[in-house]
Simulated assay, not measured.
Amino acid sequence: MNNKYNTDLLLKEANKSILFTANRPELVMEHGKGMYLWDTNGKRYLDFIGGWAVTSLGHCPEVITKALLEQSAKLVNASPTFYNVPMVEFAKLLTDNSCFEKVFFASTGAEANEGAIKLARKYGTKFLNGAFEIITATNSFHGRTLATMSATGKKKWEKLFEPKVQGFKHVPLNDSKAIQNAITSKTCSIMVEPVQGEGGVFAVEENYIRSLRELCNEKKILLLFDEVQTGIGRTGKLFAYEHFGIEPDIMTLAKGIGGGYPLAAMLTKEKFDIFEAGDQGGTYSSQPLGMSVGMAVVKEIINKNIVKNAEQQGEYIKHKLTSIANKFNLTNIRGKGLLLAFDLPVEKGSEVVNECLYRGLLINSPRPAYIRLMPPLIVTSREIDEMIEILSGVLADILK
């Protein structure tokens, strides 16, 4: 057991000095490696949350450690005034491996989405007679700034932090008629997650997303993909738009792109490179340290074909869940790659999550009857078997 830290003292200090924003369990994480985390009492946890789909290469991968050490000895921050070497190299890596030609780097998914919203509105100002409205989906999630909360389609956020940023409409996912009816002369963009992660892991239908592409072409408005959770291999493709045979006009990335380091990006086509100097920026945009980490992570995922592992292991998880589904009345096993979920027969998601935590497994319940799984992309069948064994024991006790 690790006796380096006094957990009770740490928790006391946390409650004293850290602003309350979330209900956290009474434990403190101390270190991690691969698929596992350890708390300050030395207890090990199998991580099927993956830092909220962030630790794409698992905990403390060597490529990130190496990138941080080498770049920190060269240049940490040159200010956003200048180009820097890893900035240029990372931008090229992303554009060479996607359908886009231009990149803006940021620190968080919300910041990337803010940039995308600004770009869509700039496009509306320049080419659509001042159009500014953006249509998003109900149950969507786009971030926690005021603008991205306004874009988000969570019901319980409707009255939070009013007045919201104006100019967003929410319509049901996969409802083409609702989208068509929502478009007006004020519309500049449609913003969609290829798979709604926080909403419960619900994917767009292929015919629906193709119809959106056609509709945007017809109306000359922008199609914006929020791939903050789905990008960089999470769904079994490097980018989720590849599942549908269409290309968005703008795409945002975060979470897995930095493997745990705070990093995000907005990508767009050459023809939408329309910002003027001063329209968009950020103190930490394209910071060399982050650029080096992001480049190391994305290269590792591409060079070792970790995307294929995400696809294969995702299918294995579905197979294992299906094998226990009848026993526990689990339904609607869904998702792509390693962004998966299923429905419980009763609204006991939080109980399942808490009991799994007690037994050393980290999972998530985005809604009372949903369980979500988003492990690091390096997960193996052995760790999936371990997850299923713990989960089955928990379900047997809670669902009886």
Rank of each mutant, 00 (worst) to 15 (best):
E227N: 11
G245C: 08
G260D: 12
D279M: 12
H243V: 01
L223N: 07
Y316K: 04
P248W: 09
I324K: 01
L267Q: 00
F328I: 10
L253D: 01
E227L: 08
Q287T: 10
V307N: 01
K271H: 13
L223P: 12
F328P: 13
I302G: 06
I317C: 01
A254F: 08
A296G: 09
V298P: 03
G245R: 06
Q229E: 12
D279P: 12
G231D: 08
H243K: 12
N305R: 10
L212C: 12
I246M: 15
L224T: 04
M266W: 01
F328V: 12
E276C: 13
V307C: 06
I257F: 03
G236Y: 08
F272L: 12
G233L: 03
G278E: 08
N217C: 13
P288R: 05
C216V: 07
E242K: 07
M251Q: 04
T322N: 12
V293F: 04
P262I: 00
D279K: 11
S323Q: 08
M266L: 13
K220H: 14
I317S: 02
Y241S: 14
E315F: 09
A325K: 15
M295P: 01
G314I: 01
N217D: 15
S292R: 11
H319E: 13
I274R: 11
E247G: 08
V293D: 03
G236L: 10
K220Q: 14
I317F: 04
K269Y: 03
D273L: 02
K320I: 02
K299G: 05
E242P: 00
N309D: 11
V307W: 04
T235G: 12
K327V: 05
A254Q: 05
G278M: 07
G282P: 08
I221W: 03
I274V: 11
L267N: 00
K269L: 08
A265V: 03
G245K: 09
G233H: 06
G281P: 00
Y241H: 15
N329H: 14
D249G: 05
E315C: 00
Y241T: 13
L253V: 02
G258Q: 02
D279R: 09
L224P: 00
S285I: 02
K271M: 07
K327L: 13
L321F: 06
A310N: 04
I317W: 01
S292Q: 10
G231H: 03
